[in-house]
Amino acid sequence: MPKPIIDHSKCTGCNTCVEICPMDVLKKSDDKDKKIDTTDNECIGCRACEVQCPEGCIKVQD
């Protein structure tokens, strides 16, 4: 199963990945450390978040 792995130190919380994800795998979190979090939805591994992220802090692992 593919899964997005977020580098929270680089993430600015711009929400582009949340908007672009077709399966709603990513969501905005209220935690101070994690600006974006993953949900239980199934990731199809389209890598849209990886390509679109302006900081390049998301990597999808197969």
């Binding site: 672009i20 077709p22 199809i44 591994g45 389209c46 890598r47 849209a48 390509v51 679109q52």
Partner: peptide, 14 residues
């Protein structure tokens, strides 16, 4: 259907 979505998201996004 999943493959279509993933392909187009990856290729259009680039």
């Amino acid at each position: 259907r999943k493959k279509v979505v993933s392909f187009l998201f990856y290729n259009v996004g680039k």
